[in-house]
Design a protein around this nucleic acid. Structure first.
Length: 849
RNA sequence: GCCGAAGUGGUGAAAUUGGUAUACACGCCAGUCUUAGGAACUGGUGGGUCUAACCCGUGGAGGUUCGAGUCCUCUCUUCGGCACCA
């Protein structure tokens, strides 16, 4: 018998699989039940495949192979998220066109992916940077545009001075650019947005106009919030999204402004100005001792003439404008200026309160103004302490060890609302507000509309044309795609490099034919990745983004696996796209990914993050060269639960290699290898031998563990079976083949090789050879997983003292009889009186006294 | 501060979901084959005790239960996310 040599067998079977793609391809015309098993498509970075990619791709590969062997019609595709900043930045440095670096990287990725033996259906590959793909990204943009869901507005936006582009809120982490970590500054710019905030709550269909209808679906699209409740996603990811959306329910309250020109009695006059605040704690209204407006608040400028200390106020406003978001966040001490010459009136009790301008109030959130209740809000408390303002307690309750009570409690000193709980009071006060029209219920969200335009080259161009006569004009569908020009200088100038391509820029207006200019911004790459999973169902369609039939056939995605770093950005945007398309009648489902799992980060051997700069990155190529792809696949699955963060350990992979070698060597134990082998695999004859019981138990364990994605324990079960087979003197070939089939999703190369070797006339791979992956997954015999003999634990007062072996169905009476006769037990019991005996069938007996 | 996840041998981790804690693997120890080596083979390996009996052991403190790694209360630590969001 030759030695186990992964280098030889892995290449050999990869060739065979490449020549027989039907073994793994998704069948559009099959009647079998479908399963769409999806990986997050990678960004083809020059660094090549990472062990983290291998981890998640192995998980979905095992799962897909298992489902196919169980008769499912599996769609398991792969593609490339090929637009993006790194390729463009690299081009700026090296003058190599992003298209070239991207193509090279894709080539490397594909080679590496194939060297791992993943069973992707490459006939469905998508690449977001190809015109045939981004044509539909642009088409979707126009669909959004025509339905009022894509719009352009001037807004304060996050601007990264180094990347020379705007960023989405989600990409400006703590005031720093996600990519290059430079400090983000705020700029007023005209930008394109998607109306993601329209889809936070459930939405009845076809609200938007003009209506584009297609297909028959439910007339409600679940919102980004409520939709979370019906999908099988990790709790942590759901709560990250909820947090990001940041829903808070409360009320807006109008505080009339009183000043010397317009005294209090001018309430009916149209000139009456109000300060409108947002609060979630209406119940604390009687504890409000002042109000605060953000420095950007428009009311301050409207009332400029009546502000007595305008110079002071203006100075403060200008100073806080100069601060970046980062400065504001880092400033631990609250500052502000009292606006002199006017007061705000608490509408509930008519009290005249001072008004401040302070930058601890955010202009973008709520109404940009708050009612301050220092007795029950930490920020207001801090501010009030500093400026010596009144602190009035109106809620009683347990402060625990804090200075002030910020939780709900019972109202005190709140006129006729005293004695009510916070919850009751909010309801009553809100009714009062609504009756008096002095405010209303209001829900606020932290989530803002998604800024999608980028002043960069390597992205999908936004299909809009500006005409002097007609204004903003959508590129007609027949003119799509708007192709990226090649003759471009990549230097970032603060404007899109596309601005400097005359060929690209200068066009005729599609409406009137007059000379016009193209939009030169491109789309955020997250737009491309928000719909790619739909394209896999119908990747070559040049009439539609995906046909209705193929959408119905393959979507939604049954299992999606990828990194937790996409919990907010990609996964939220993809859900939004699905919801828009559902709302417009294109899809009959409103959640794209029914089941989601994350793979945990693989850390370097020293427990820190793998990083190029530290030089502790494990390259899958090196591991494959040394131990083979099968060993790497199994090792990564064996390290621990898929979702756990775990450190790499080069020594550990040796154990896996030894295991595979042991499986290989079991060949020598096969009795009569020339034994007639059935063409299709069948379960071996039911023999109630110990080994047969273990085989059946292993079938059950491995099947259930793959379904539950507990690959680490599935592998451990396979090791136990292998160890047991190793102890046998002789092995039935059918038993051996069974082990190989159970192992095949994990170690496809080894399994295919051994399967082939155990066939008659196995000298060469010929046309009649039927791959192991076309075999049926074995079923276990429920009768054969029951042990005849079991160990029964004998406990005295809950402590294990002894054990006996008995038949599995032994009765309580019989066990009692045997146990009470045992010397050891007699010693324990002696004269003590037995109070109780607890018996768990086939497991234990507990004697209590 | 808020939200989420997790704490079990020297290490990665198991535990039929309330029923023998540490499966499987790494490492370590002893031995075997070998000129030698180990990515070979055999056996051992939670702590205390010479050994056994026994006692102690799942971050910590309580509790429920015949019985708790698992359930409840409090608490500590680590990791991830958000963070002046009223």
């Amino acid at each position: 018998m030759e030695k186990y040599n992964p280098k030889i067998i892995e290449g050999k079977w990869q060739d065979f699989w490449a020549k027989n793609p039907d073994n793994f391809s998704a069948k559009d015309d099959s009647e079998q039940e479908k399963a769409f098993i999806l990986d997050m498509f990678p960004y083809p970075s020059g660094a090549g495949l990472h062990v983290g990619h291998v981890e998640s791709y192995t998980a979905t590969d095992i799962y897909s192979r298992y489902l196919r062997m169980n008769g499912k019609n599996v769609l398991h595709p792969q593609g490339f998220d090929a637009f993006g900043l790194p390729a463009e930045n690299y081009a700026i440095k090296t003058k190599i066109h992003p298209k070239i670096t991207t193509e090279d990287a894709v080539e490397i990725f594909k080679r590496q992916i194939n060297s791992m033996g993943f069973s992707y259906d490459w006939s469905r590959e998508v690449n977001s940077s190809e015109p045939a793909y981004y044509k539909w990204t642009q088409w979707l943009f126009l669909l959004f545009y025509k339905n009022g869901l894509a719009y352009k507005k001037k807004a304060k936006v996050n601007w990264c001075p180094k990347c020379q582009t705007v960023l989405a809120n989600e990409q400006a982490e703590n005031g720093k650019c996600e990519r290059c970590e430079s400090e983000v500054i705020q700029k007023d710019l005209e930008q394109w947005f998607f109306k993601i905030t329209d889809f936070i709550e459930d939405k009845s269909k076809f609200e938007v106009s003009p209506r584009v209808t297609r297909g028959e679906t439910s007339n409600l699209t679940s919102g980004l919030l409520s939709g979370l409740e019906k999908i099988d996603w990790p709790n942590s990811t759901k709560s990250l999204q909820k947090n990001w959306i940041g829903k808070s329910e409360g009320a807006t309250i109008k505080f009339p402004i009183s000043n010397f020109q317009f005294p209090n009695n001018s309430q009916n006059s149209n000139d009456q100005k109000y300060l409108e605040v947002f609060t979630t704690r209406v119940d604390t209204i009687f504890g409000c001792t002042y109000c605060v407006a953000a420095p950007e608040h428009s009311l301050i400028f409207e009332l400029k003439d009546q502000i007595k200390n305008w110079d002071e106020v203006e100075k403060y406003i200008n100073e806080s404008k100069k601060k970046t978001d980062l400065d504001r966040m880092e400033a631990k001490v609250k500052t502000g200026v009292k606006i002199k010459g006017m007061k705000v009136i608490n509408p509930f009790n008519g009290e005249a309160l001072p008004l401040f301008v302070a930058d601890y109030v955010l202009s973008q959130y709520g109404t940009g103004a708050v009612m301050a209740v220092p007795a029950h809000d930490e920020r207001d408390f801090e501010f009030a302490k500093k400026y010596d303002l009144e602190i009035k307690e109106v809620i009683s309750g347990d402060k625990k060890d804090k200075k002030i009570l910020t939780d709900d409690g019972v109202l005190i000193d709140s006129e006729n609302y005293s004695g009510l709980t916070s919850e009751q009071a909010r309801e009553k006060l809100m009714v009062w507000l609504e009756e008096k029209k002095n405010g209303q219920r209001k829900i606020n969200y932290k989530l803002r509309d998604w800024l999608v335009s980028r002043q960069r080259y390597w992205g999908a161009p936004i299909p809009i044309i500006y005409c002097e006569k007609c204004g903003e004009v959508a590129v007609p569908e027949k003119d799509l795609p708007v192709v990226l020009p090649d003759d471009v200088d990549f230097k970032p100038t603060g404007e899109s490099p596309l601005k400097y391509s005359k060929k690209f820029q200068e066009v005729k207006c599609p409406k009137c034919g007059a000379p016009a200019k193209r939009e030169s911004d491109t789309m955020d790459t997250f737009v491309c990745s928000s719909w790619y999973y739909l394209r896999y169902a119908d990747p070559k369609n040049d009439k539609e983004f995906t046909s209705k039939e193929m959408l119905a056939k393959w979507l939604p995605v049954d299992l999606y696996v990828g990194g937790a770093e996409h919990s907010v950005l990609h996964l939220l945007y993809a859900r939004f796209f699905t919801k828009v398309l559902h709302n417009l009648g294109y899809l009959n489902f409103d959640e794209p990914f029914l089941k989601l799992r994350h793979q945990g980060t693989i850390l370097a051997e020293d427990g820190t993050k793998m990083s190029k700069s530290k030089g502790n990155v494990v390259n899958p190529d090196d591991v494959v060269a040394q131990f083979g792809a099968d060993a790497l696949r199994i090792f990564e699955m064996f390290m621990g639960p898929l979702e756990d963060m775990k450190p790499w350990n080069t020594k550990g992979i040796v154990g896996i290699y030894r295991f595979l070698e042991r499986v290989w060597k079991l060949q020598s134990k096969i009795q009569n290898p020339k034994y007639q082998i059935p063409n299709k695999f069948k379960n071996p004859n039911a023999q109630n031998s110990k080994l047969n019981i273990l085989i059946n138990k292993t079938i059950k364990k491995v099947s259930e563990d793959i379904e539950g994605m507990k690959f680490n324990t599935a592998i451990s079960a396979l090791m136990i079976l292998t160890n047991e087979m190793d102890k046998q003197l002789e092995l039935l070939i059918t038993d051996y083949q069974l082990l190989i089939i159970l192992l095949s999703p994990f170690a496809p190369h080894l399994a295919e090789e051994l399967w082939h070797k155990t066939r008659i006339n196995a000298e060469k791979i010929n046309a009649t050879y039927e791959s192991i992956f076309l075999q049926e997954w074995p079923k276990y015999d429920p009768e054969l997983i029951k042990d005849e003999e079991v160990e029964i634990i004998i406990q005295i007062n809950g402590k294990v003292r002894d054990k006996i072996t008995a038949s599995a169905d032994i009765s309580e009476e019989e066990v009692k009889k045997v146990v009470l006769e045992r010397e050891k037990i007699k010693n324990y019991i002696s004269e003590k009186e037995i109070r109780k005996i607890i018996f768990v069938k086939g497991r234990l007996i507990n004697i209590v006294f």
